[in-house]
Write a protein that binds this DNA or RNA. Structure first.
Lengths: 224, 224
DNA sequence: ATAATAGTGTCTCTCAGACATTATTTA
DNA sequence: TAAATAATGTCTGAGAGACACTATTAT
């Protein structure tokens, strides 16, 4: 068997994914159950070693694909965790990534043993993964407050009510329908389609993300 | 000589520092000149390998101490860079950190070969360090706009005019004196001392950071 | 006295937040 | 025609931004 020798000890580097989705009108996170030591039976974030010839983002996409079957999603680097004792087996540095996946894009893959867990009912996770999830949640709420990435959790076309409900689920607050519509439309992030969704009551116009939009709509700043 | 053998190839992990200071009323960044390959003669960010038993933040503090002689400063993780080809010698993953150092705390150390460079007159740097600095600058401006960390670049006690000047230097805009004072004082981030600075004109009251303050004063949000 | 810098208050306009009714469809 | 959901406008209060003069010191 081949082996690799270095003059100084090297950490291993992994990518762990905080994958958010909406399931049954609740915010959910994809977790995998560990079989092996050091946390057998514990749930942990999906992750894996960074291969020597792939970038960090490629590693994140690879893990995402393995667990969800989808190629692309909203993806963003979260934070890098590197305390020497965070993995009892040895020095592991983890680059955490943050993904938003739309309900209709996820197909469970044969390789995946991942399951959705509601974000507000998480078990104790292995390693420092509760801390990572906690930070991912803060970042998600922050992003929703200051930008407009909520539609990443929705199908390509969606109604304004669906979008508002997604925001309410994640932020955990009720929003005013008229104010929500005013702000989201003035931000010019989404546009009308000519399609309509029929249901129980009056049909709803469908919207989609504007490809040319700048999603990072900043609120008012402290300075200048 | 001792060596370390692994079943799979491992990247090396470094910490690189974007260290900001104010020099001669201009925003400056601390750089070191490389002697060795692959970028001899090029300026690069101060950095070093993460030791196997130190955390990432400890590595950042160690490098900061080596280059500036100061123990503590405002320190924050910036981003992790990991493209496979970013170092021609091999796979190197770099966790970039961001530091703000106050003018009066920096003492050049014998170990340091670092020099201050004005942020708007940077040379072409080795590796992908121009990209890292660029991101550091964006983050610095963003932090100043949305929070209030400007005083981290100043001595412990400072006048409001000094603080305003620092903001103007970094943001590159003129600010209105009365509005600046109103906003910074309403934010309750700093407090008066009973000390006064005497100079050419009317003496100025000195202020200091409030230890109990929450520096992250958020502006108005998009939602809710 | 003059030069230099510190310190202070008001008005206006924009935008966030609160709030209720009408419109269109299915059953 | 009743039930369900979509769509729409106005008023008010808070806060950002523009703006000019007085106060206190050294020289």
């Amino acid at each position: 068997m081949q082996s690799f020798t270095y003059a100084f000890p090297r950490p291993s580097v992994t990518v762990d994914m905080v994958i958010f989705g909406v399931r049954e009108s609740r915010l959910a996170i994809l977790l995998v159950e560990r079989e092996a030591t050091p946390f057998p039976g514990y749930w942990t974030l999906p992750g894996g070693f960074v291969q020597i010839d792939e970038s960090l983002e490629e590693a994140a996409q690879r893990i995402l694909r393995k667990e969800t079957g989808i190629e692309a999603a909203y993806l963003e680097q979260l934070y890098t965790y590197g305390k020497p004792d965070r993995d009892p087996r040895g020095r592991v540095i983890t680059v955490a990534y943050f993904a938003l996946v739309a309900a209709d894009t996820v197909s469970s893959t044969p390789e995946s043993r991942a399951k959705w867990h509601y974000a507000n009912e998480l078990p104790t996770l292995g390693f420092d993964h509760n801390e990572i999830v906690e930070y991912g949640l803060r970042r998600l709420r922050y992003k929703l407050e200051y930008s407009a990435v909520g539609f990443e959790l929705l199908p390509t076309e969606f109604t304004l009510t669906e979008l508002q409900t997604t925001y309410e689920i994640i932020l955990g607050v009720q929003l005013d329908k008229r104010n929500f519509r005013r702000k989201i439309l003035e931000a010019k992030i989404i546009e009308e389609t000519h399609n309509t969704r029929f249901g129980e009551g009056r049909p709803a116009r469908l919207y989609r993300y504007r490809e040319d939009a700048v999603a990072e709509v900043k609120a008012r700043r402290l300075f200048p």
